[in-house]
Every structure is written in structure tokens, then in C-alpha cells.
Nucleic acid binder design. Sequence first.
DNA 1: CTCCAACCTGGAGCGCGCTCCAGGTCAAGC
DNA 2: GCTTGACCTGGAGCGCGCTCCAGGTTGGAG
Lengths: 124, 124
Amino acid sequence: MSGYAPSEAARRSGFSLDTLRYYEKIGLLADVDRTAGGQRVFTDDDLGWLELFRCLRDTGMPIAQMRRYAQLAREGEHTADERCELLQHHAVRVEEQMDLLQRQYEHLREKIRYYERLPGPSSS
Amino acid sequence: MSGYAPSEAARRSGFSLDTLRYYEKIGLLADVDRTAGGQRVFTDDDLGWLELFRCLRDTGMPIAQMRRYAQLAREGEHTADERCELLQHHAVRVEEQMDLLQRQYEHLREKIRYYERLPGPSSS
DNA sequence: CTCCAACCTGGAGCGCGCTCCAGGTCAAGC
DNA sequence: GCTTGACCTGGAGCGCGCTCCAGGTTGGAG
């Protein structure tokens, strides 16, 4: 109970098969287990990583940085500090991103209000 | 007073010269005024458009959709409804985007808290 | 009048993050 | 044992939004 076929891993993670293979190829996902015949078998641990990658990706972290994080994690406990700093640094970027998005969203709403104040074509 | 050289327009809008030319080339920015010699002269109106484009771009609207909006605006008042719908539709996307960003930001913070609870290397 | 920085054009190139493809292999069900 | 659908590989291709380039023109300062 913790061995998933590629299609199942794709379903659970929300990434496409191609993306899963791509992530392994570029060294984001460390060597995934294989059957005797060479087909991938994803573990719960792999799925955990994928969940993290989704979080980081959705918040705009570049792949190169995710890879750095993953490599540090593989190097062991002594990189915990650096990993933490990396995430903290990223969190600041995300905050800036949220601020900007919020501000521009308000501009957008203002623009929409302008249109909504115009008399509509079907106003009697 | 309301005629800006390309470099000045770039400075004011925050877009690069190349991007301004690109936006005109693809029909986002409608034909910009020129001097007798062919050099661009941006108006306050152009700068207004650029401000809108920045808002839409920062909120993730694809260029194709911005171009559609700009073209509708050029077609006249009778497209106001469609333009408004386009912006409203976009606003919904932006709200979704903000929700997702917020959720993932919280995951990120949680992850960071995990690291911060670890004993640091210099803890006495 | 001369100079030179700013500008022009068309078109090629790039960085990112996948996505698709051909040609072959694996393995579960009948 | 055979079939068939899921899987494998390396590598090419794509869509987006710029960005850069070569080679030439413009136009304000001195």
C-alpha cells in the first residue's frame, strides 16, 4: 500500500505523465523506483514531493530553485538551514506577488465599475 | 504638453522600448503618432492604455485577450458591453488566482514553521 | 555643418516549462 | 500464448512574451 502506477500518480498529483517524467529527468524528483521491467512505481514520499512542487510552482518559484531545494534535501539534515532560508526568501516574493495582484485587482474592479455606470443598451 | 519620446514613454510606463514597439507591432497599441522623420511620439492617451495593459498583464491576462479588448475599444461605443463582460470574466479568473495563491502561501508558511521548530545549528 | 545618441525596421533568437512523437517494451486479462 | 493498453526512451517542437541584432536614419546640441 504505497506503490502507484504512473497514471495513478498523475491522477493524484495533478501533473501529467509527461511532466512527471520531465521532473524526474531534470532531477527534481529523485530516481523513482522501477519494476523489474523498468516501469515507474511512485511512493507516498514521491507524492509528498509532488505536492510540495505544486505549492512552489503555483506560487511562482522557478524550477531551477525547486531543484536546488530538492538537492539540498537529498544532501541531508545539515542543509536544513539553507532550505529554510530558501523558503523564507520565496515567501517574501509571494507576499509581493499577492500585494501586486491585490492592487491591480482593485484597478480592474474600478474599471469595471466605470463600465457598469454606463447606461446599458437595454436600459428603458 | 502631451507628446513623449519613446525613452520617456518607456520610463513612464515601465515597459522597455522593445516591448513598446512589440505592443504596437502586434496591434495592442494602435498606430502611435510619428514625427515627420518616422520616430514615435506617445500621447497621454497611449500612456493610459499602457497603464491598463500593465494592470491586465500583472493579473495574468494573455496578450491575445488584451488585443481583443483593444480592438473592441477601437470599434466604438457599441462594444462597451462586450468589453465589460471581458473584464468581468477576467476578474473572476483573478479572484481564483488570488485564492489559490493564498492557499499555497499558507502551505508554504506551514512548511517554514516546520523548519523553524527544528533546533537550529547554533542553539546553545 | 557635424556629430552622436536616440531612434527606426524586419527578423532571428531566447528562456521557460512543458508537450508531443516515433519506435519499441511490459504486463494483466482472456 | 496472445492481445492490447499502459508504459518506456531520447529528442524534437511549441507557445508565450518578450529581447536582441544588424544596418540604416533622425534630429537636437555645439
